[in-house]
Design a protein around this nucleic acid. Structure first.
Length: 663
RNA sequence: GCCACUGUAGCUUAGUUGGUAGAGCAUCUGAUUCGUAAUCAGAAGGUCAGGAGUUCAAAUCUCCUCUGUGGCUCCA
């Protein structure tokens, strides 16, 4: 019997007889309760049943590790398919991969109802209790074709992924068999902590012209605690849903009659937006930006020059045509198709709702001669743009058809790119910091060296990419480089922020652009007296006010910090004897620019507290006999702890302090 | 845009196999003037998302449109 030398990750290797399974090795090294769900042999993932026949390195994959969770979730997808097939024998399983937090499996089948979903879940739990062995079997392709002959999806996968003459593996648990590379957990008892979450649809191969499939999603973890933590988080997230809070707290309204994806900012929401815009403006001024206003529409020709029309025609509102032109075209019997062609070819002109602010800003740049002394020229605008998002995409404030970018365009020399990109990131850092969103990262989007879709010379790209890298690095912000993620016209930086629940939100970007200055033939006079081409930087660090406010609502769960709070103080009176005192305080607060509101109605104080708490003001003042006779206030602060008998002036001073410090 | 589901008063919702809409909160009017998460009583409020159809009869069945939700796809 041959002995093998196996590196088990300890100081000295172990010796085993050939043919030993990795499960036995792991049990030998790490004990019975190793928590292993699979293993790696020389870095390759294998099942625990895998047998060793030569010297190698064997390391366990623990269920709670990232790799281990991936395997648990993958196995859980199989378990789902097994249960589904028991209820729906005609269902055709297609693919079932692990995903973040869980897994899904796509089937060709009728959509299961909520009750059926719960029944499937229950059955999965039973299958776990049965502790079915999950076994790997290998077959040649002909045999596999026979085994899955009744499932055209599996056949299609085989045709594509498995070469003629070769084979692949299947995994069997009970009477369920699935084509799969593995590895998988050794038995179903490892799959205890899962839950089916929702049913949706997807297309086979993500191709809308192919079959529609039913996708069942589930979450899966290695421990009860992790599963429960995830469930708690999801519950908390749904409580914070900005669509619900936006309605409850009267922050914004979306009206069927106005249109899909169009936000109506109600007075309370407008306060939040204005405070934010004002805050951002202060920083813009500090950083040498100049603010501008530009109209919501512009001539088609402007967007022909910029390239937005007709390239992005499908994701824009259709153009606006002048009345006389329309009349004339109509007299000539022009069809819609003709009209569209005429517009694309530039035969007729019209106006477009702006999908971007840059063309307008570029024309401001071009409105006068520029010299190197003018650069960097930084034009900022809270500019509202309109884009025709697909109807199925539109959601709350985060995916809309009309939105206001905290936009700016910087016209710079090539040497200024790095410093200006740095300035953009600095601004983001300050504002995220103020809002308590300290956890964020940036993605540096670089070009894909194999592609030729990019405009501009490679040397300039190298320089700009390095500038973005340096800027990100010099701020000590966590960043990742992502080749292939650049826009065709230049490298970019995306901001991804984590909210209090740890959810990531992609907000704004900073993008270097060589293309538009070229298209608009922008120039500046250098110190050498020659004409040079400026470089543009687009930046909208928060993306849009709509999206950003939506994220903030969820981040704060509707409980805004005092400076942002739509109403900062709600004054509640105990009885009508204290109305005069309440009015006096309300007046004082209003004069100081503090947003306060009174409830002098005849509800009991308990009822008033209940009502006003629901609106999440920063402070709830309670004014009665005690307070009126001593010139004090009692309040529930942002932490909802009660403080009694505070001198009015002291209260006001600390409130103003808090607002000014944005603390 | 595609697929599935969904839509009843401002909000949350009840409404059996088709028989002609009921409640709570909010609103308004009275009464009550009260110290910490719902004071009492009364009134008003609905072309049951919109349209067409089937039927003696439609919130309920069929079709179309619109909105919303979950996904897919897309995102300058």
């Amino acid at each position: 019997m041959t002995m093998l030398t196996v590196d088990v990750g300890l100081e000295s290797p172990h010796e085993y007889t050939t043919g030993i399974s990795v499960a036995e090795i792991i049990r030998n090294v790490h004990g019975k309760k190793s928590g292993a769900v699979a293993a790696t042999v020389d870095g390759n993932q294998v099942d625990l049943s895998y047998e060793i026949h030569s010297d190698c390195t064997v390391l366990p994959i623990i269920g709670s590790s990232e790799e281990g969770l991936y395997i648990l979730r993958h196995s859980c997808a199989h378990l789902l398919a097994q249960a589904v097939l028991e209820f729906f024998p005609d269902a055709k399983p297609t693919i079932g991969p692990p995903i973040e937090h869980g897994f899904y499996y796509d089937f060709q089948m009728p959509a299961p109802s909520e009750e059926e979903l719960r029944a499937i879940e229950k059955r999965m739990k039973e299958l776990v209790k049965q502790n079915l062995k999950v076994e790997r079997e290998e077959y040649d392709i002909e045999t596999l074709r026979e085994m899955f002959a009744d499932n055209q999806f599996k056949i299609e996968i085989m045709d594509e992924k498995i070469g003629e003459g070769s084979g692949s593996s299947v995994y069997r648990q009970g009477d369920f068999v699935d084509l799969c590379r593995g590895p998988h957990v050794p038995s179903t008892s490892h799959l205890r902590w899962f839950k089916l979450t929702n049913v949706s649809t997807a297309f086979w191969r993500a191709d809308s012209s192919r079959e529609t499939l039913v996708r069942i999603y589930g979450m899966c973890y290695s421990s009860k605690e992790d599963l429960q933590a995830r469930e708690t988080l999801l519950r908390e997230a749904s409580k914070r849903d900005h669509r619900k809070l936006g309605k409850d707290l009267k922050l914004f309204h979306i009206d069927e009659m106005v249109g899909q994806g169009l936000i109506l900012w109600t007075p309370r929401g407008t306060v939040v937006r204005n405070e934010l815009q004002q805050f951002i403006s202060e920083h813009l001024n500090r950083q040498g930006y100049q603010q501008v206003y530009t109209p919501h529409i512009g001539k088609l020709d402007l967007y022909r020059t910029s390239g937005h029309f007709p390239y992005y025609q499908d994701s824009q509102y259709p153009p606006i045509i002048e009345r006389d032109t329309l009349r004339q075209l109509s007299d000539e019997g022009c069809s819609c198709g003709d009209l569209s062609n005429l517009m694309s070819e530039g035969e007729i002109d019209g106006y477009m709702l702006k999908p971007m602010n840059c063309p307008h800003h570029i024309r401001i740049y071009a409105s006068q001669q520029r010299s190197y002394r003018d650069l960097p020229l930084r034009l900022a605008e809270f500019g509202t743009v309109y884009r025709w998002e697909q109807s199925g995409e539109i959601s709350g404030m985060t995916r809309v058809r009309g939105f206001t970018q905290d936009d700016a365009h910087l016209f710079v020399t090539e040497d200024q790119i790095e410093q200006e990109v740095l300035g953009c990131i600095e601004l983001v850092k300050v504002i995220f910091g103020t809002l308590g969103m300290d956890d964020y990262r940036v993605r540096v989007g670089l070009r894909d060296s194999d592609s030729d879709k990019y405009v501009g010379e490679p040397e300039r790209w190298d320089k700009a990419e390095q500038a973005c890298r340096n800027a990100a690095a010099s701020l000590g912000v966590e960043f990742s480089e992502e080749p292939g993620e650049a826009a065709f016209y230049g490298p970019k930086i995306d901001f991804v922020v984590k909210d209090v629940l740890g959810r990531e939100w992609q907000l704004g970007t900073v993008q270097v652009d060589y293309n538009l200055p070229e298209r608009f033939d922008l120039t500046y006079t250098g110190s050498d007296g020659e004409k040079h081409r400026p470089v543009m930087i687009h930046r909208a660090p928060f993306g849009s006010m709509e999206r950003f406010c939506g994220v903030l609502i969820e981040h704060f769960g509707g409980m805004f910090p005092t400076w942002l709070s739509p109403t900062q103080v709600h004054i509640l009176t105990i009885s009508e004897k204290h109305i005069a005192y309440a009015e006096e305080i309300n007046m004082k607060l209003s004069e100081l620019g503090i947003r306060s509101e009174m409830d002098t109605g005849d509800d009991t104080i308990g009822k008033k507290l209940r009502t006003h708490r629901a609106m999440r003001p920063a402070y709830l003042l309670i004014l009665g006999e005690e307070e009126a006779s001593n010139s004090t206030v009692s309040y529930l602060g942002p932490d909802r702890q009660q403080v009694n008998g505070v001198d009015v002036q002291k209260f006001i001073d600390s409130l103003i302090d808090e607002i000014q410090n944005k603390s």
